[in-house]
Write a protein that binds this DNA or RNA. Structure first.
Length: 799
DNA sequence: AATCCGGTTCTTTTT
DNA sequence: GAACCGGATT
């Protein structure tokens, strides 16, 4: 169709008006927002406003459809409309807004036609809530903004009968999964050293990530004993899950793919529904997720994937960077947009990151820049021991705090959790408040699992797996032997364990245990009745009491206080759910909870230094960041120094870590470090060599450097740029650990002091301790703190 | 059924 | 060095 003069004028006006709506974005970002039709790859560097683009793109699609790039005027548009738009462009008024937007919109999408997939609940929630704010709650609620897993759950709840599942299927988490696997391995009388549950679970998980059925795995095993056995375990495991009408996390994805592949008419329905598909963090997708996304987008092929190949750090859990690297091959008509302007960090930090990641061969290539200015140099500090490293960090933070920073302005990132130990004691010693984002998450804690298991059993007494978990927790004199007898009777009678338990008296085999069993069954019955008339949170309290769980924890005293708190935490989760939901049910809560793993309320309001692994830091930002344990063998981990591919993943992790810092980045390492019970001597991380010296201030002294050079056999002459920790003469010599010539010895209880960070206080006790003095000081503002005199004196004067 | 002892293991993690 | 598991002991 030929464009008329009218079309040209109209569409130009329309584009201009739409463009103005997104004026707060930069050119690249806008390009991504306006490219609505066809495949789009957005390579979004760290801190480049990725989520903002994703959200505005959805807003654009919902408000204007493909209005921005449509070259034609609407059929019924008049000269008067044209004049109206011209006027609206000149002076937009609220009164004219509705008509203008109607004129500018070309086939705007309905909310349920948009699918935005993320990896974490946190990300899904953020997208959902930002869209609700921009578009109104009711409207935005219908957008499919969810994680891969909850999307699959939603689809499967509706369609799973087509693949032979009952709609009420349950989700087995990693823990449930391991229990089943342990039973399978035991049942086959296999050596559980050779077939270690974790390894087997990982193998099965990887198979599912790659959409491989037990049969396919068996075929691939080609008669090799080990592989064949794994495939057989997989087969048995899958059989048991199906029998229990259960799926594990990986099943959610794989079964959805199988559902679609086996039922084209169902697939087509979803393909017709989703006009626009967006996938976030695409570099983290595994093969199954890739196939699923491709299937769902297969109708309109309006697929937009957002990600950063340089931030792919989850290969170990099945992510294939290939998905993003080969997107353009998959869709030859794909458009690629790079977001390289960074709004987070200083140029020094970004340049360091750019130089570092440049050493990776397998990447698309990007160069981050900012107009935030150069900022201060990165600080590099090498200590002799891990204690020295920890002390340096504590002191740096105390100094910063004294200058007015908040504790929460600081984050400490490390390659693995063990590295946090020395730091913890240094922080305790110096009264630096801290918070560790731990490896063990809320829903992995035994007490939380126990309470959830109770709820599962109350909801569905046929759930043998969860029943086994709690039947004797707290102790009810129902031993292992009894449980096995019950299980035996159940399988022979082709019924559930709970059924046997309720009729325990009828079985002689159960002997004296029958009474305890009956009592247990009655308790569950009672709780089921309570569920019918009590509000959910009160009901939960009844479960805690009625089962004796709370009492058992309380009986253990002080030590179990944290566990009690955790079970209470679960209660507040239930209360929160009950309040939010119009029609709250236990089943509804359990459904939600089975996909809700991380405690994504990382309460930002707590003012404390935060410590976490570099992996968990992805997506976060902090004004000041310490990367600790920057030593070869630790980071990069010795496991990954063998092959280039693994090393590149480590380098990406380093890139992720470096780009978390907004203002100041610190890199620290120690010459020797106690790890796993032995002292390890290490060289500074090879990644440090890759950061040009001009971005770094280092503490390495002349003598240290000379020694380093003698020790370091790596040829350095070949390097084109001088590197941060090599001899250059350019480094200032800095006295880092001040020799504490303390006048501290004459401090005594009753003395008044002024502390730079904590203000005025009075010493309440002095205890000699390892060549130093432990002071207890009651401060007017911040309460009582315990400080070591040596370091405290640097921040404190006696009055 | 609870507790103690010795042996073993020790990247990274979301759903 | 610490945490966790399984077997033996009480």
């Amino acid at each position: 169709m030929e464009q008329t003069r009218f079309d040209i004028q109209f569409s130009a006006l329309r584009s201009a008006i739409i463009e103005r709506e997104f004026s707060e974005l930069n050119d690249r970002q806008r390009e991504a927002v306006f490219h609505t039709e066809g495949p789009l790859l957005v390579l979004a560097g760290a801190g480049s406003g990725k989520t903002t683009v994703l959200i505005h793109r959805i807003i654009n699609i919902l408000r204007f459809g493909r209005g921005y790039s449509c070259p034609y005027a609407p059929d019924d548009a008049t000269e008067e409309d044209l004049l109206f738009l011209r006027e609206y462009l000149r002076t937009p008024t609220e009164k004219n807004r509705l008509r203008a937007e109607t004129l500018c919109a070309v086939e705007p999408a309905r909310p349920w036609q948009i699918l935005a997939i993320t990896f974490t609940n946190k990300a899904a929630k953020e997208i959902q809530s930002r869209l609700q704010r921009a578009l109104g709650e009711d409207f935005a609620r219908d957008i499919w903004a969810s994680t891969f897993h909850s999307m699959c759950m939603r689809i499967l709840r509706r369609e799973c009968e087509a693949i032979g599942y009952d709609r009420s299927f349950t989700i087995y988490d990693t823990d449930d999964q391991k229990r089943v696997l342990t039973a399978v391995i035991k049942g086959r009388r296999l050596d559980d050293k050779v077939f270690d549950v974790r390894t087997v679970a990982a193998a099965i998980g990887r198979a599912k990530d790659n959409l491989m059925t037990p049969r396919m795995l068996l075929q691939e095993a080609q008669d090799r004993y080990y592989e064949t056995t794994i495939a057989e375990i997989y087969k048995e495991y899958a059989r048991q899950l199906r029998e229990s009408n259960a799926m594990d996390f990986d099943d959610l994805i794989m079964k959805t793919v199988q559902l679609f592949q086996g039922n084209p008419e169902i697939l087509e329905r979803y393909q017709r529904q989703f006009h626009y598909v967006l996938a976030d963090e695409y570099q983290d997708t595994n093969h199954a997720q890739y196939v699923l996304t491709s299937l769902l987008a297969g109708g309109y092929e309006n697929i937009c994937v957002v990600g950063d190949d340089d931030q792919s750090i989850y290969k170990f859990r099945g992510a294939t960077i290939t998905n993003i690297l080969e997107f353009e091959q998959q869709y030859p008509n794909a458009v690629t947009i790079r977001l390289e302007q960074n709004y987070r960090s200083t140029q020094n930090i970004l340049s360091a990151a750019n130089e570092l990641i440049r050493n990776n061969a397998n990447r698309k290539g990007k160069e981050l820049w900012t107009d935030n200015g150069d900022g201060t140099k990165i600080r590099f500090h090498r200590s002799d021991t891990q204690e020295g490293e920890a002390e340096y960090i504590a002191q740096s933070i105390l100094e910063g705090f004294a200058e007015g920073n908040r504790w929460s302005d600081y984050a400490i990132l490390y390659r693995n959790h063990v590295l946090s130990n020395a730091l913890e004691s240094a922080f305790k010693r110096n009264s630096v408040p801290y918070r560790i984002v731990s490896g063990l998450r809320f829903f992995d804690r035994a007490e939380v699992r126990d309470m959830l298991a109770y709820l599962w059993v109350i909801l569905n007494p046929a759930d043998d797996l969860r029943l086994r978990r709690i039947i004797n927790v707290p102790a009810r004199k129902i031993g292992n032997k009894t449980v096995e007898t019950v299980a035996d009777l159940a399988s022979r009678g082709n019924t559930t364990m709970f059924d046997i338990i309720s009729r325990a008296g009828e079985y002689d085999e159960l002997g004296r245990a029958a009474a305890a069993l009956k009592k247990f069954a009655l308790m569950i019955d009672d709780l089921q009745k309570m569920l019918e008339y009590l509000p959910l949170d009160e009901f939960y309290e009844q479960v805690m009491e009625h089962t004796g769980y709370l009492a058992a924890l309380e009986a253990k005293g002080e030590a179990e206080q944290a566990r009690i708190e955790n079970t209470m935490e679960l209660k507040s989760n239930i209360a929160e759910y009950a309040q939010r939901e119009e029609n709250p049910t236990l089943a509804g809560f359990m459904e939600e909870v089975s996909l809700f793993t991380d405690i994504d309320r990382m309460d930002a309001d707590a003012d404390a230094v935060v410590m976490m692994t570099m992996h968990s830091a992805k997506g976060l930002e902090f004004p000041n960041v310490f990367l600790i344990g920057m030593e070869d063998g630790i980071f990069p981990s010795f496991r990954s120094t063998e092959n280039e591919e693994d090393l590149e993943e480590e380098r990406r992790l380093c890139y992720v870590a470096v780009t978390r810092a907004k203002k100041q980045l610190y890199l620290t390492c120690a010459e020797r470090r106690m790890m796993y019970g032995r002292t390890q001597y290490s060289k500074p991380s090879r990644f440090l060599e890759e950061i040009p010296e001009k971005f770094v201030d280092s503490n390495i002294s002349e003598t240290q450097r000379e020694r380093q050079q003698r020790l370091d056999m790596r040829p350095s002459a070949g390097h084109q740029t001088k590197r941060a920790f090599e001899i250059s003469g350019g480094f200032r010599k800095k006295q880092t650990t001040a020799k504490p010539k303390i006048a501290a010895m004459d401090l005594k209880p009753g003395d008044q002091v002024d502390h730079k960070a904590f203000g005025h206080g009075m010493i309440t006790s002095c205890m000699p301790m390892g060549g130093d003095i432990l002071l207890e000081i009651t401060f007017d503002q911040v309460g009582t703190k315990r400080l070591m005199a040596k370091s405290a004196m640097k921040f404190m004067v006696k009055k």
